[in-house]
């Protein structure tokens, strides 16, 4: 007899969370609202990565490059093309998807460890480009372009509160969209490829195309996160395409659990909260992040959500 978390409890938890997020701007100070936005945006990035990480076992260490490309593209749209909210959104997502295509074209040619290395190296190259092409990208200093007053729809401009809700809505939408994708026939093929690539290939599927398409899709969501990041900060710099960020995203996914779409966002929230707490005591918080990482990998490799899932469905 499977002992599952009763549906009622799940609904209650979900409602509580949603209400919390909905009313946060009214209840919390600016700092915490900002913090929640960060959790959502990074969580979205983590979910986008998990589409290929959890469902295809493609451990991409280059997702920051894709994310950051979306951010930079949004910035360019505003500074160079004079575009508005929707243009920046569109261009950002498309640009990120294209970068994902470029990286994916090469990385999916190899498997396993080589895939990791290739995405990692690509990411660093993008970082170097962002740092050195100073005329275009502003180099180390990045690009600043205030989004205050940017019109979303007639009458609604992008101040902090509307921005928060825009982020919330888009992140929630993405979550449900990604869940639909992974539970769809397409998603099932991905899982099948993850479990036994050879067999899927024998069945006639063009595995490489599936991998590439999933990478592009993943890139689109990462790009969305990137655009939202730019809107949140009115700023983008090479940090957004750096390897530390790429690695962090992988860590968040793993801490939360790569088996579901819920895992990445839980992992992100958990890690960001923990780091926030540790940072108030010491500036060497990375030491603890490193230790936590080793502990999670050694003792809870299925992540927090995976661990909870196992606990609640013991036969």
């Amino acid at each position: 007899m499977k002992k599952r978390l009763p549906i009622l409890v799940k609904v209650l938890i979900a409602s509580a969370l949603v209400s919390f997020f909905l009313f946060a701007p009214k209840l919390l100070s600016t700092f915490y609202v900002y913090f929640l936005m960060e959790i959502m945006i990074w969580g979205l990035l983590a979910m986008s990565l998990n589409l290929i990480l959890g469902y295809l076992n493609l451990v991409s260490f280059g997702h920051a490059a894709i994310f950051g490309s979306g951010a930079y593209a949004a910035a360019f749209t505003m500074t160079l093309l004079g575009g508005g909210f929707w243009q920046a959104l569109g261009v950002g997502i498309v640009a990120a998807a294209l970068v994902a295509w470029l990286i994916g074209f090469f990385s999916t040619r190899v498997g396993g460890i080589a895939y990791i290395m290739v995405t990692l190296i690509f990411c660093f190259s993008v970082f170097l480009l962002a740092m050195s092409a100073t005329e275009i990208t502003g180099g180390e200093n990045g690009i600043y372009s205030s989004v205050k007053g940017l019109e979303v729809i007639r009458g609604l401009s992008l101040d902090r509160k509307p921005l928060y809700y825009v982020v919330f809505i888009l992140t929630a939408l993405s979550f449900f969209l990604l869940r639909r994708i992974v539970n769809s026939p397409f998603g099932r093929v991905l899982i099948a490829i993850r479990e036994n690539e050879e067999r899927v290939r024998f069945m006639g599927y063009r595995v490489k195309n599936f991998k590439l398409f999933a990478s592009i899709l993943s890139g689109a969501f990462a790009g969305l996160a990137g655009v939202l990041y730019f809107f949140m900060n009115s700023f983008v710099s090479p940090e957004a395409v750096g390897l530390p960020l790429s690695t962090e995203v992988v860590v968040w996914c793993l801490v939360g659990g790569t088996g579901t779409m819920l895992g990445p966002i839980v992992g992100t929230a958990l890690m960001l909260v923990i780091i926030q707490i540790i940072s108030t005591y010491t500036k060497f918080y990375l030491l603890f992040v490193g230790i936590i990482l080793v502990l999670v990998v050694a003792f809870m490799p299925e992540g927090v959500v995976g661990f909870m899932k196992n606990k609640f469905s013991k036969e």
């Binding site: 451990v59 230790i291 990482l293 080793v294 990998v297």
Partner: peptide, 14 residues
């Protein structure tokens, strides 16, 4: 492999 990779990454970080 991903686990040893992340474990060594964590160790390097520390």
């Amino acid at each position: 492999a991903i686990y040893t990779l992340l474990a060594t990454y964590g160790i390097g970080m520390a």
